[in-house]
Design a protein around this nucleic acid. Structure first.
Length: 821
RNA sequence: GCCGAAGUGGCGGAAUGGUAGACGCGCCGGUCUCAAAAACCGGUGGGGGCAACCCCGUGUCGGUUCGACUCCGACCUUCGGCACCA
C-alpha cells in the first residue's frame, strides 16, 4: 500500500529545517559524549540493528521514542550515552552473496552506509564517533579474546552435537532455514548430522540467571519467559534395580519431580538413544526394538517434537525393580522420553502424569492411583490426577499428605542410598559453532600432537580471509580455504588445522554494550578506566522477541566476565522496556506480500522527521505497538503547523493583555504531566498534554487573555518540552524566538506544585453513586459545607425527597456521594 | 494444553476505586472561495424528549463496594510466548 493522499499543506519546510539542524548539530558536535563530564552518567541503549539494507518503519518505531527518552534524560541533567552500531555478521549477508554474487563484506558495508544516512535523518543524539560494526576485525578480535578467556575458565568446551542438514544443498541449515521440516531453498526433507562443536557452559550459571529479584527492573513477562526457559525443576534422582541382567550398570537412574507417586510406578521408559537400551533388550524382543530405535533415529527432531504426536514405544522384554515396594515393572524404549533432559529415563506413573497415562493406555499397562484427591470416589479418574491429595496404596506413607510424603520418601531414599534430591534444568549449554563464513572465526587450532590448542592472544585477530568461497559446498566454507586452514601448531610448530567454524552472532551482541564505552580502545575489549562509570546499561529498549536468547546470553556473559575479575557488576541491563510492534494500516503485520509496508523515507521526505517521530509516539502506548495510519499522521502534521504559527506570535502584541493565573496553572500542570509521562515512556499522553496546552495557548492568544511575560514563559517551556519529541522544529522555533542555541542544551522545565493547584474545583454530586449535579466550590471546602450544598441542590432534591439520608461520602476535591434508602 | 498481555465510540486510544470516552483521526455543519483543497469555528457513544433533562453504555455472567473500565470469581474472544522437561 503506497501512502494515501495527504491533504495537509505544511506552512513550514520540514526538509530544510531537518537538514539545517542536523548539519549544525553535527558540526557543533552537541551530542558528543564526554567521559569526563562531571554530571551523573546515564547509559540508555537501543538494541542495535542488523544491517539488512534499508531502515523500515519498525526501526523508527524502536529508535525514535527511545531517542526521545534519552533526550529527556539528557535534559534532566544526565551525561547521556545513547550509542548506535550494527550487528553486522550473520546469515543474510551470506545469502546475498550466494544469490547476487556480492561479497558479504561489500553487501554489509554498503547497507551500513545507506542506513547511517537514514538513521541520521531521524535526528537522534547518537554520537557517531562511538559507532561499532561487529564484522570488522577491530571488533571481532575481542570476540576471539573473550572466547579464549572463557576457554581458559573451562566455560568453553567441544562436544558432539547434531546439526540440521540438507542432503540436497549439502549444507548445514540454521533452524530458521527449515520450513515444515524441509530446506527452505530446495524443499528437500532435512536430516541430522553429528558434528564436533563448541559450547559455552551457560548451565553453570542457571541458578544465578534465575536470580533477578530486586536487581532488575524488567517487564514481568520477560522474567517469566527467562524462568521458563531456564526451567529449573527440583526433584529426586531415583534408581531402579536391574542387577539381575548382569550389565555394567546395575541400576537405571530416573529423575522425578513427583517422588510422592513412586508407588504408582507401573513401567519405566528410556529414551531410544539411552545406552542401556541395547543391553536390556531380550533376544526375543531384539528385532522389534532395533526397528523402533532405528525409526526414532530417522525421525527428524522437528517431527519428534511436533505437537500432539501419539506416544509410541516398544517393550524391551526386561524388568526393573522398584526398590520401595520390590515390584518388577516392565522397561520400554519410548521416544517421548528425551535424551537431553534429566537422565534420559523416566518412571512411568500413569495415574498422575498425563503423558504416562497416554502411554499406559496404548500399551495396556496398569494405572494405580497413589495420591487420593480430596473426596475421591475410589475409581480411576478419566484424566491423570496431578494435584495434591493424600498418600494411598503407598505402604508406610499412607495417610500422609503428598507434600509430607515427598519429604519422607526423599529422606528414606537418600538414607537407603537409592537416590538423592536433584535439580534439573531445561536450559542447555549454548552452542556457538556455526558452519558459516560470515562470522567470527573461532580461534582454535587442532594439532596431531598437542590436540586442541588456543591461538595465542598476541596472534589475534584470526582474520576472516576475504577470498573464501562461501557458496554451499558440503562443509564449512572456511574449510575449503587452504590458506586459512593450514597453520603451524602454535605450540609445537608442526602442520596443524584451524577450526573452520565461526561464532554465533549472539556472541557479538552479548558484550557489545561494553564496547560502546570505549569503542576505539586497542589494548582490550573495553577501557577498564571508564567501563564502571558507564556500565551497566541503565535503560535498555528493544523488542520482546529477544526475551530469552540475547538477553539471557548477555546476562551469562556479564556474570562470567565478573567472575574473571574483568568487571565489577552482575547484570548488563538494569532496566528493560519492550516496545510493541508497528502494524500496517490494515492492522496486520507489515510484510511485502501484503503490500502494507510503510517506507519511512517517503513519509519523512513529505512531512519531515518530526512528524514521523511524533506520530509514532502518538499512536498509543509504546509497549503495545499499533497500526500505522496515513491519515492519522495528518493530525500530527496539522498540530505541528499550528505550533509553528502559534510559537511565532509577537508577544509584544499582548502588552495590554490580562494577567491570567489559569494559563500559569495549566503550564505547570502540563510540565508535571509531560515530565512524568516521558519518564515512564508514556509518549502518547505526553504529546496529548502538549496538544491540550497548545490548544489552550491558542485560545488565550485569541482572547488576549494572557500577559506578555506569561506568554513568553509558556512559549519557552512549551518548546523545551517539545524538544525531545520534535527536535528540529523545536530548535528552529527556539531560534526564531531569539533564544540562545541550543534548545537541546536546556534543562527540562520544572513545575511548582503550588502553582498547579486550582482555587476552585468542580465537585461532583452523586446520589447512590449516580451523577446528579456538579458544583463549583473552593478547593478547601470542608465536608460539612460540601454536604450541605449538595443536599440543597435542586437537582439532588428530587432524589432525596421522602428518603432517609443514611450518610454521605466526601472525597476532597472530587465528589460528594449521598447515600439514601 | 500451559504461561503472559489485552478486549472501551466509526478508528487509534484516555481515565491514583470517584464526572467514561482526554488527545487525535474520521464524519456532519459553518466561515473563507467562482469552486475545491488548505486553514479556521462549532458539533459528534446509543436511545428518548420541543426543552430542561432522563434511560442505556467499557467482551459475557456473577460478586465486593456508597461508588467498578479499574478489585475478585467463572467464562468467551484476540494477540504474543512456550510446548512430550518426567
Amino acid at each position: 500500500m503506497q501512502t494515501a493522499p495527504r491533504h495537509v499543506e505544511l506552512r513550514y519546510d520540514p526538509a530544510a529545517i531537518d537538514q539545517k539542524w542536523q548539519q549544525r548539530w553535527a558540526d557543533d558536535q552537541i551530542y558528543h559524549v564526554d567521559d569526563a563530564d562531571p554530571r551523573p552518567k546515564w547509559y540508555e541503549l537501543t538494541m542495535y540493528p542488523y544491517p539488512s539494507g534499508d531502515l523500515h518503519i519498525g526501526h523508527w518505531y524502536a529508535m525514535a521514542p527511545s531517542d526521545c527518552h534519552a533526550r529527556f534524560r539528557r535534559m534532566q541533567g544526565y551525561n547521556v550515552l545513547h550509542p548506535i552500531g550494527f550487528d553486522a555478521f550473520g546469515l543474510p549477508a551470506e545469502n546475498a552473496a550466494i544469490s547476487r554474487g556480492i561479497h558479504p563484506y561489500q553487501w554489509t558495508m554498503d547497507n551500513i552506509q545507506n542506513m547511517r544516512g537514514q538513521l541520521r535523518s531521524m535526528g537522534t543524539i547518537y554520537d557517531w564517533e562511538r559507532e561499532i560494526i561487529c564484522c570488522l576485525p577491530e571488533y571481532y578480535r575481542w570476540n576471539q579474546w573473550f572466547f579464549l578467556q572463557l576457554y581458559r575458565q573451562g566455560l568453553a568446551y567441544r562436544a558432539q552435537a547434531p546439526v540440521v542438514w540438507c542432503p540436497s544443498c549439502q549444507t548445514v541449515l540454521a533452524n530458521e532455514q527449515v520450513l515444515n521440516g524441509n530446506c527452505e531453498r530446495c524443499s528437500t526433507p532435512i536430516t541430522r548430522r553429528d558434528l564436533e562443536q563448541w559450547f559455552l557452559r551457560i548451565t553453570d550459571y542457571a541458578d544465578q540467571l534465575l536470580d533477578f529479584d530486586g536487581l532488575l527492573d524488567w517487564p514481568e513477562k520477560i522474567l517469566t519467559m527467562q524462568r521458563n526457559w531456564i526451567g529449573r525443576s527440583d526433584g529426586v534422582d531415583i534408581s531402579f534395580d536391574i542387577a539381575e541382567y548382569g550389565l555394567d550398570a546395575s541400576e537405571i537412574r530416573t529423575f522425578t519431580t513427583r517422588i510422592d507417586t513412586i508407588f504408582g510406578v507401573t513401567f519405566l521408559a528410556l529414551a531410544p538413544e539411552n545406552p542401556l537400551v541395547a543391553g536390556l533388550t531380550t533376544d526375543q524382543r531384539r528385532a522389534d526394538v532395533a526397528a523402533y530405535v532405528e525409526q526414532a533415529r530417522q525421525t527428524s527432531e522437528v517431527d519428534r517434537l511436533a505437537a500432539d504426536k501419539e506416544k509410541t514405544g516398544v517393550f524391551l522384554g526386561s524388568y526393573a525393580v522398584n526398590r520401595l515396594n520390590g515390584e518388577r515393572v516392565p522397561i520400554f524404549a519410548a521416544d517421548y522420553v528425551l535424551t537431553t533432559y534429566g537422565t534420559g529415563a523416566v518412571m512411568g506413573v500413569p495415574a498422575h502424569d498425563a503423558r504416562d497415562l497416554d502411554f499406559a493406555r496404548k500399551y495396556g499397562l496398569p494405572v494405580r492411583t497413589v495420591i487420593a484427591p480430596i473426596e475421591w470416589d475410589g475409581r480411576e479418574p478419566a484424566q491423570a490426577y496431578v494435584g495434591d491429595g493424600f498418600m494411598t496404596d503407598s505402604g508406610p506413607y499412607d495417610g500422609m499428605t503428598n507434600q509430607e510424603g515427598t519429604e519422607a520418601i526423599s529422606n528414606d531414599v537418600e538414607r537407603a542410598g537409592w537416590g538423592r534430591r536433584a535439580v534439573s534444568y531445561r536450559i542447555r549449554d549454548w552452542l556457538i559453532s556455526r558452519q558459516r563464513y560470515w562470522g567470527t572465526p573461532i580461534p582454535m587450532v587442532y594439532c596431531a600432537q598437542c590436540g586442541t590448542v588456543p591461538v595465542p592472544e598476541d596472534q589475534l585477530p584470526v582474520l576472516l580471509p576475504p577470498d573464501a568461497d562461501f557458496r554451499p559446498t558440503g562443509e564449512s566454507p572456511l574449510a575449503a580455504n587452504a590458506g586459512f586452514v593450514n597453520v603451524p601448531c602454535p605450540n609445537c610448530g608442526i602442520p596443524a588445522r584451524r577450526e573452520t567454524d565461526t561464532m554465533d552472532t549472539f556472541f557479538d551482541s552479548s558484550w557489545y554494550m561494553l564496547r560502546y564505552v570505549s569503542p576505539r580502545h586497542e589494548s582490550g575489549p573495553f577501557d577498564p578506566a571508564t567501563i564502571e562509570g558507564w556500565a551497566p546499561v541503565d535503560q535498555y529498549t528493544g523488542g520482546a522477541e529477544h526475551a530469552v536468547m540475547h538477553l539471557l546470553y548477555a546476562r551469562f556473559f556479564i556474570k562470567a566476565l565478573r567472575d574473571m575479575g574483568l568487571i565489577g557488576f552482575d547484570e548488563p541491563f538494569l532496566r528493560l522496556y519492550n516496545q510493541g510492534v508497528i502494524l500496517g494500516e490494515d492492522h496486520d503485520k507489515m510484510s511485502k506480500s501484503k503490500g502494507n509496508v510503510v517506507n519511512p523515507d517517503d513519509v519523512v521526505g513529505e512531512m519531515g522527521a518530526d512528524a514521523v517521530r511524533c506520530f509514532l509516539m502518538f499512536i498509543g502506548p509504546w509497549d503495545q505497538g499499533g497500526p500505522w495510519s496515513n491519515v492519522g499522521i495528518n493530525g500530527i502534521a496539522r498540530w505541528l503547523n499550528r505550533v509553528w504559527a502559534l510559537m511565532q506570535h509577537d508577544a509584544n502584541q499582548l502588552a495590554g493583555g490580562d494577567s491570567n493565573d489559569e494559563t500559569l496553572r495549566i503550564l505547570h500542570r502540563t510540565i508535571r504531566k509531560c515530565h512524568n509521562d516521558l519518564d515512564r515512556f508514556k509518549f502518547n499522553t505526553a504529546i496529548a498534554s502538549l496538544m491540550e496546552f497548545s490548544n489552550h495557548l491558542s485560545k488565550v492568544w485569541g482572547e488576549s487573555a494572557v500577559d506578555a511575560a506569561t506568554w513568553r514563559e509558556c512559549v519557552r517551556a512549551f518548546l523545551v518540552m517539545l524538544a525531545p519529541i520534535a527536535p528540529h522544529l523545536a530548535e528552529e522555533l527556539w531560534e526564531r524566538n531569539g533564544l540562545p542555541y541550543s534548545i537541546h542544551q536546556q534543562p527540562f522545565p520544572e513545575w511548582d506544585e503550588s502553582l498547579t493547584a486550582e482555587e476552585t474545583v468542580t465537585l461532583v454530586v452523586q446520589v447512590n453513586g449516580r451523577l446528579r449535579d456538579r458544583m463549583e466550590v473552593p478547593v478547601d471546602i470542608d465536608q460539612a459545607t460540601a454536604q450541605e450544598l449538595a443536599l440543597a441542590s435542586p437537582r439532588v432534591q428530587p432524589y432525596t425527597d421522602g428518603k432517609t439520608v443514611n450518610r454521605a461520602i466526601y472525597v476532597p476535591g472530587k465528589l460528594v456521594n449521598v447515600v439514601v434508602a
